[in-house]
């Protein structure tokens, strides 16, 4: 039993990260119709920036905040320099453009930070917490707390602010939104900025658990995408739930099936989801954006 709990505890920690990356996919896909391949790369940029700032001696809180802003800026740059000038291209072309952005960002990170993984310590030091025989590291608690806070913030944003509602409108029907004087180009900018910022948050809380390195963007992007698809690619909360279930499925898969195929678990889930329930696991609940 304690073994099972350990798998679940590990899985939730990883799954929360997948979910946060997945949120970005959902926001961008709904507002612009683009699957953004550079999503995991924002996480990477924020994580590495945070490491550099911490190494330069900046205190934790400002360092992490600046790093998140840096990640968000990468989102702004993606939208303004690449997506916006190309907005008359086909969606297919836009998706491939984000592949180009991802390649360039990865190269840039390699240029600045080199190949070696780096890391800083957990936010609060101390031994892991024991829950019914399962060890949960303190940083995992931070990850969960931050994920919860992000969920609340997203709920508030989409439900209570004008911009959030405008973005929802854009997601529902872009042409109708334009008739309501909502500028899709502006919404696209907001979407990219938010998606990158959320990924950035995931990046800075993730570093103490593992480490930051220049080519972490692709694997995290893929897992985040899978999380988003499990959630039906329609709601940020679906993506969070999808991430958590993916993380747990992976960890339990390692525990009881085969660790060699653990990565296969995620992608088989992705394939099955698309084939069997392309509307996502949570569609029945008729999730709105909030």
């Amino acid at each position: 039993m304690s073994e099972f709990l350990q798998f679940v505890a590990s899985g939730i920690g990883q799954g929360a990260i997948y979910g946060l990356v997945g949120v970005g996919f959902v926001i961008i896909y709904n507002v612009t119709g683009i699957i953004n391949f550079a999503q995991g790369h924002y996480l990477m940029l924020s994580a590495l920036t945070a490491v550099s700032l911490r190494e330069a001696g900046l205190p934790a809180v400002p360092a992490l905040l600046v790093a998140i802003v840096a990640g968000a800026l990468a989102g702004v740059v993606t939208d303004r320099l690449v997506i916006n000038p190309a907005r008359r291209h086909s969606p297919l072309m836009l998706i491939i453009l984000t592949v180009g952005v991802a390649i360039a960002l990865e190269g840039l990170a390699l240029l600045i930070w080199g190949v070696n993984p780096r890391r800083y310590g957990p936010f609060t030091a101390g031994p892991p917490l024991e829950v019914a025989g399962a060890a949960i590291s303190r940083q995992t608690l931070w990850v969960l707390g931050v994920t919860l806070a992000m969920a609340l913030a997203l709920w508030w944003f989409f439900q209570r602010t004008l911009v959030g509602k405008a973005m929802q409108a854009c997601a529902m029907n872009r042409d109708a939104a334009r008739l309501q004087a909502i500028n899709p180009a502006q919404m696209s900018l907001y979407a990219f900025t938010m998606a990158a910022a959320v990924a950035g948050v995931a990046g800075v809380v993730l570093v103490p658990i593992t480490s930051a390195y220049y080519d972490m963007g692709v694997p995290f992007g893929l897992k985040g995408f899978t999380a988003a698809v499990i959630g039906g690619l329609v709601s940020p909360f679906g993506a969070l739930a999808g991430g958590l279930s993916l993380g747990v499925a992976e960890a339990v898969g390692v525990g009881y099936v085969s660790s060699a195929m653990a990565e296969g678990v995620a992608f088989t889930v992705l394939a099955l989801m698309l084939v069997l329930r392309p509307e996502g696991l949570l569609a029945r609940v008729r999730m709105r954006w909030a």
Binding site: V99, I103, A104, E106, G107, L108, L110
Partner: peptide, 11 residues
């Protein structure tokens, strides 16, 4: 540098 150049050229 090559990777950056490659990505930028693609874009």
């Amino acid at each position: 540098y090559e990777i950056v150049a490659y990505g930028l050229a693609l874009v």
